[in-house]
């Protein structure tokens, strides 16, 4: 065994041949790359190997890069959630406004939302509260009191 494995040129030539025959393992290919990067691979017999391995090395790096593939499923779900949220907010705002401003009348079982009609009914119900003056009720109550007193004295 040579002191430096890199000095065994025949070993590396044999390994290069096996590389071209696609018989090398990943570990052997990695070793080849390290060898080619060393000063021991300066000879012309390794030029072709350098060129090929260099080309595939770049290709491998490109392949190893994480791909940013557009995922319709992922962004579709996100878009659906955003749309659902916007719809809910719109509905919530509409519902809140509807609850804050109501104007409806049920007249003998029939529903009215026309503001003029509803406010007219409102005015009518206020007029229904008009009452005859209190004197009449006081007279009536005094009569009741005196009647009670006379009943008691008897």
């Amino acid at each position: 065994m040579k002191a430096s494995r890199y000095e065994d040129k025949q070993y590396w030539l044999t390994l290069a041949e096996r590389y071209f025959e696609a018989e090398t393992t990943d570990q052997e290919e990695a070793e080849l790359v390290r060898f080619l990067a060393s000063p021991f691979a300066q000879g012309a017999e390794f030029d072709e190997l350098c060129a090929v391995m260099g080309y595939f090395s770049v290709g491998k790096e490109e392949y190893a890069k994480p791909r940013t593939v557009f995922s319709w499923r992922k962004y579709g779900r996100l878009a659906a959630a955003v749309i659902a949220g916007l719809l809910m907010m719109t509905w919530g705002g509409y519902e809140f406004n509807r609850q804050q401003n109501l104007c409806v009348a049920y007249v003998y079982g029939e529903r009215f939302t026309d503001p003029n009609r509803v406010l007219s009914e409102m005015e009518t119900s206020l007029k229904n509260l008009q009452y005859e003056e209190v004197e009449e009720t006081v007279d009536h109550q005094l009569s009741s009191i005196f009647q009670t007193l006379s009943d008691t004295n008897e």
Binding site: Q100, L102, C103, V104, A105, Y108, T124
Partner: peptide
């Protein structure tokens, strides 16, 4: 009483009552 044929029920809330200085009006006749 909404479906009652002898009843008039009124509900007003919000902007329409501003001129009356009211916020809510409910009546049943």
């Amino acid at each position: 009483y909404k479906k009652n044929h002898n009843a008039i029920e009124v509900l007003v809330k919000g902007d329409k009552l501003a001129s009356y200085h009211l916020t809510l009006f409910r009546s049943l006749t």
